[in-house]
Nucleic acid binder design. Structure first.
Length: 427
DNA sequence: TCTGGGGTCCTAGGACCC
DNA sequence: TCTGGGGTCCTAGGACCC
């Protein structure tokens, strides 16, 4: 049996942890640039604040009900997430925990007798709350997809304060699937949900489970569809995975605080994002072969349905993989010339590094001198200084110093657990 | 006026090779 | 001028996730 542990309204819970007066009150957390709403407390949901809805649209409700609002504080959330995951690893053993996202982890519970699962889950839930202050909900079932179904149901009934749901018999599974709308099945997104309902009259998880694998193959994207169907039937198709230590792609992208139309500003932003991405790259001891950048134009007509703006991409392949910021910045900034149009306003830009290889085994290019990675040492120094001093004390000149384009973050709480000067004070 | 940031996997189609 | 069949690799794009 597998379980998924999911932190309830994670970002909101993190904020509340240091502001106990907000317990039981509605709270929301905004995305970067204070653009849209990415976490809502139970109470805020009840007032009808929509997930991923734009902040400005929800503002009337927020003001009316006096909903506590925060900009996102990833230092805080990241640290608390680590504490929750460490707790799980201590309880179950490292090898039985697969961290799936900042607020979710899959557990392998195959070592426990079936009649103990409820108790085990309850114990996990209570320990995590006691040690970290974060409330979680837990779904237990034979497969990951079904555990997700169980997890969703466990939250339905918050009144019991249990937030545990174990699907350990065929009957319970069928009942649970019947109660789950097709769009709430893990792996069925908006597009598929619409297609399934409109063209195939598939409305619930149970309807989908009753289909044939061959059918799923043609309708739901090939092998992915087959896997989904197997999992719904209780047959494992998604194994527990080793933790993905190294990413295959690294990106850094941001909205601008306000639209930008100067190429020099775009270049500064690209240089800054490249430094950030390069830092992430070095953190996992990789080097990149390919740099891509993109910029997104501010849309002229918003009209009724918001679509993500048109983005323009450019990429270049390096003759030699590198993890050095200055070797990456130059080509990245040069790409800007290829895609920037004069007179156009942009709202967002990003940098992607791909073709990642371990940086101790860089493929040498016969046309180049032997790899010069003496910069690697300099980079480590910069990373260390930035890590200890914080706030990127050392920057490359190309990143600029004024940063007119920097994102808005007007309501960020203190970084209580990762900055000495922002510790919570108790008088 | 104002709509996030980071990832993954899969497929189709084109380029290229023998 | 005519011309097969099979394979690999890469990229773009579409779907999904939180």
């Amino acid at each position: 049996m597998k379980a998924i542990v999911d932190c309830n309204s994670f970002y909101c819970s993190c904020e509340r942890l240091f502001k106990p007066h907000l317990d039981g009150k509605p709270v929301i957390v905004l995305s970067n640039n204070d653009g849209c709403i990415i976490s809502r407390s139970h109470e805020a949901k009840k007032f009808g604040v929509e997930m991923a809805g734009p902040y400005f649209k929800a503002k009337p409700i927020i003001e009316k009900f006096n909903i506590a609002t925060f900009s996102s504080n990833y230092n805080l959330y990241g640290d608390l997430s680590w504490r929750v995951m460490e707790t799980l690893r201590m309880l179950l053993g490292k090898e039985n925990v697969e961290v799936y996202s900042v607020d979710e982890a899959f557990l392998d519970l195959s070592g426990y007798p079936p009649d103990k699962l409820q108790e085990v889950a309850k114990n996990i839930l209570e320990t995590v709350e006691m040690w970290t202050g974060i409330k979680v909900s837990i779904g237990v079932a034979p497969t990951k997809v079904l555990a997700k179904v169980a997890n969703r149901l466990s939250k339905k009934d918050q009144s019991t304060k249990q937030c545990v749901c174990v699907l350990d018999t065929e009957d319970k599974i069928i009942e649970a699937l019947h109660a789950t709308p097709i769009g709430d099945i893990w792996g069925v997104g908006r597009q598929y949900a619409e297609k399934l309902r409109d063209q195939y009259a598939v409305f619930t998880g149970l309807d989908l489970r009753n289909k044939k694998e061959e059918w799923a193959k043609t309708v739901l994207g090939g092998v992915t569809g087959i896997r989904l169907l197997k999992e719904l039937k209780g047959e494992t198709a998604n194994e527990m995975e080793d933790e993905l230590i190294n990413k295959k792609m690294i990106m850094t992208t941001r909205m601008f605080g306000s639209p930008v139309n100067k190429i020099s500003d775009i270049k500064e932003a690209i240089a800054t994002y490249t430094s950030k991405a390069a830092e992430k790259l070095r953190r996992q001891n990789s080097a990149a072969n390919v740099i891509s950048i993109f910029i997104v134009a501010k849309q002229q007509d918003y009209m009724s349905n918001f679509k993500r703006g048109q983005s323009v991409h450019a990429h270049t392949t390096l003759s030699l993989a590198t993890s050095c910021t200055n070797d990456l910045i130059k080509p990245a900034v040069n790409l800007v010339d290829e895609i920037f149009s004069k007179g156009c306003s942009y709202k967002k830009a990003g940098v992607m590094l791909s073709g990642l290889v371990p940086d101790n085994a860089i493929q040498t290019n016969i046309f180049e001198e032997t790899p010069v990675n003496h910069n690697r040492k300099l980079m480590s120094m910069i990373d260390n200084i930035n890590f200890s001093m914080r706030d990127d004390i050392l920057k490359f000149a190309a990143s600029g110093t004024t940063r007119d384009w920097k994102m808005r973050q007007e309501m960020r709480s203190n970084r209580y657990t990762t900055r000495w000067e922002e510790l919570r004070e108790v008088r």
